[in-house]
Design a protein around this nucleic acid. Structure first.
Lengths: 220, 220
DNA sequence: GTCTATATGCGGATAGAC
DNA sequence: GTCTATCCGCATATAGAC
């Protein structure tokens, strides 16, 4: 059947792009592992770069839809009130973690690929890639600003980037991180919760009082 | 002079690897831009991959030396007392930010490259790359654990990774981030301070009390 | 140390039979 | 939809003159 080949190519591409990187993966080894031929990639996707776009699109769309879905529900329930900060962060962070689990090996490959995608492509491609997040990002900034009235737009945006960085790094490195391999391996659900706590505290931090906050917590 | 060519190759490689990625950069365009020839890379560095290692080594060594230097001084001053949390984070975060500025365009290129390095190389290379951070990472984990007695080793390690992720992401995307391009562009020094505050609050967050912390700060 | 020229192989894309 | 065969160019690496 036609769609079987297409799906197979997507799966193998996802894994190889994650393992070796986009440029370093050849269509030859890709199609060889998928049990098909180079021409089929061009038939189904048009080009190698279009294949990458399809790989990303397949996973990103449901993740971002789910994020907005949860945020919608939170806002509907809260009415005019600001949302709880941790709830908003969970709306953002839970979908990738859950989908990752739901998708099994493909999900893990995709997440590794995500953390790497900005390195592997030209500017135009990256721009089109980032555009997929535009709506999501803006919606969450608005929600976060209402929950964090002491911060301005720039503060919230940057902190949101910090959080995305933490998430991306965790997703990418969590599976093969020599630095914390001793007793630190951790259930993904626990990791998600750690990230929510870390992110919520970081997001809520007061600006312009660099020393005071830390000191009390630290001594003793 | 010999070392001029070598330095020139390093500079151009740093920029192109950061722009296009390692695999996508050919020695041909690299040496062409450097005004030399393919053979000179192999003469000076041995191979393309060894050139990448040299590019990283040149910047990483002084950054990590500086980190440990600052941490040494903090620990010497504090004696037996735990260190101030924000001080520890600054010891870790300040060197890359300051070196980045000090090194000008090369520094900016290097930082972009850093965020991308795990995507562009094979496992063996990554392993040798990560080993450069081993000492630094362990030293900071020890210092942080003493400053954060309510956390166990795994908590501290993961939160340190979260912080590294935030830093790497910020370094990589800060220069061309369409998501926050409106009024959010920010002085690097300010960004460093934002990151310290975000990180300190995140690091100090209490474990296992998911809702309580956020809610008070959020409502109203 | 630096270069030109070359060895040798793999890259993406496509034409055209089935 | 799928395949083989092929086009054409670029890749890294190196030999050897200067």
């Amino acid at each position: 059947m036609a769609s079987d080949t297409k799906k197979l190519i997507l799966d193998v591409a996802e894994r190889l792009f994650a393992d070796r990187g986009f440029s370093a993966t050849s269509l030859r080894e890709l199609t060889s592992e998928a049990g098909t031929n180079v021409a089929s990639v061009n038939y189904h996707f048009g080009s190698k770069e279009a294949l990458l776009a399809a790989v990303l699109e397949r996973r990103l769309r449901p993740i971002n839809e789910r994020r907005l879905d949860i945020l919608d529900k939170l806002e509907h329930t809260a009415g005019e009130h600001p949302l709880n900060l941790e709830d908003v962060l969970r709306a953002f962070l839970t979908p990738p973690f859950h989908k990752r689990r739901e998708w099994g090996e493909g999900g893990r490959n995709f997440m590794r690929l995500m953390g790497r995608i900005h390195s592997e492509t030209n500017k135009e491609f990256r721009a089109s890639f980032i555009r997929q997040f535009d709506t999501v990002f803006r919606r969450f900034i608005v929600a976060l600003r209402r929950s964090l009235p002491h911060l301005d737009d720039a503060d919230v945006s940057w902190r949101m980037l910090f959080l995305v960085g933490s998430m991306a790094f965790t997703m990418t490195w969590a599976e093969s991180m020599p630095l914390v391999d001793r007793e630190a391996s951790r259930d993904p659900e626990e990791l998600l919760e750690s990230l929510v706590q870390f992110g919520a505290a970081g997001m809520a931090a007061t600006t312009r009082a660099p020393v005071a906050v830390g000191k009390e917590n630290v001594r003793g």
